[in-house]
Amino acid sequence: MILRVLLAVFGVVEFLFPRRLADASMSLATTDDSEYELRSWVYTVARVEGLCIAALALWYGRRASSGDDE
Rank of each mutant, 00 (worst) to 15 (best):
M1C: 10
M1K: 06
M1Y: 04
L3R: 09
R4F: 08
V5F: 10
V5W: 06
V5G: 03
V9S: 11
F10C: 15
F10Y: 15
G11F: 00
V12A: 14
V12N: 00
V12S: 00
V13S: 06
E14P: 02
E14Y: 08
E14F: 08
L16Y: 09
F17V: 09
R19N: 05
R20K: 11
D23K: 02
D23C: 01
A24F: 13
M26K: 03
S27C: 09
S27V: 14
S27Q: 15
A29Y: 10
A29K: 11
T31N: 15
D32S: 10
D33H: 13
E35D: 12
Y36W: 15
E37D: 07
L38T: 08
L38M: 14
R39M: 11
W41Q: 11
V42N: 03
V42P: 01
V42D: 01
Y43T: 05
Y43S: 04
T44S: 09
V45R: 14
R47H: 04
R47Y: 02
V48Y: 10
V48R: 10
E49R: 10
G50Y: 08
L51Q: 00
C52K: 06
I53L: 13
I53Q: 05
I53N: 04
L56K: 01
L56Q: 03
L56I: 09
L56M: 09
L58T: 05
W59S: 08
W59P: 00
Y60G: 05
G61M: 02
G61L: 02
G61I: 02
A64R: 10
S65E: 06
S65M: 08
S66P: 00
S66F: 02
G67I: 01
G67V: 00
G67D: 00
D68Y: 04
D68S: 10
D68K: 08
D69V: 07
D69L: 11
E70N: 05
E70Q: 09
